[in-house]
């Protein structure tokens, strides 16, 4: 223990190698925060915790220190299924060239009120 002094020493002794800790790494959890009633939960970040209960508590301390949320979700990162990142092009191809799905496609009615 170095004591409360902040002035410090400059002892240049190298630390002894650390004894390996006998534990599995805590699982990774993804955190979703609802910032206020009426809004969806939005991904805020991730954290490590040994179980779901600790994950929720840690998420509160880590992601809502300034009233950022009224509700939290934590999800084991390993449970999230994602689209294949290598198949981006083909997978999201369907809406390409289908501008008629947007209101802005229809220009003949420009100037008509309340349409």
């Amino acid at each position: 223990m170095t004591g409360g002094s902040t002035t410090g020493d400059d002892g240049s002794t190298a630390p002894a190698p650390l004894a390996p800790e006998k534990r599995q790494p805590w699982p990774l959890w993804e955190v979703f925060v609802r910032s206020s009633r009426g809004l969806s939960h939005v991904h805020a970040g991730s954290l490590h915790a040994p179980d779901a209960e600790m994950a929720v508590r840690n998420a509160r301390d880590l992601y809502t220190r300034r009233n950022e949320g009224v509700s939290l979700w934590v999800v084991p990162a390993s449970s999230i299924i994602t689209s294949d990142p290598d198949a981006k092009g083909q997978f999201f191809e369907s809406p390409q060239g289908k501008d008629y799905r947007h209101a802005t496609y229809y220009t003949k009615s420009d100037g008509v009120k309340h349409l």
């Binding site: 223990m1 170095t2 902040t6 002035t7 410090g8 020493d9 400059d10 002892g11 240049s12 002794t13 630390p15 650390l18 800790e21 006998k22 534990r23 599995q24 805590w26 040994p50 179980d51 600790m54």
Partner: peptide, 24 residues
């Protein structure tokens, strides 16, 4: 303060080992 900062960080990590083990 290099040595002091490292020593303190190491100490905190080692002192917390039992908490991490207990939680797991």
């Amino acid at each position: 303060c290099n040595a002091q900062r490292m020593e303190r960080r190491r100490e905190a990590h080692e002192d917390g080992a039992w908490v991490r083990e207990a939680a797991a």
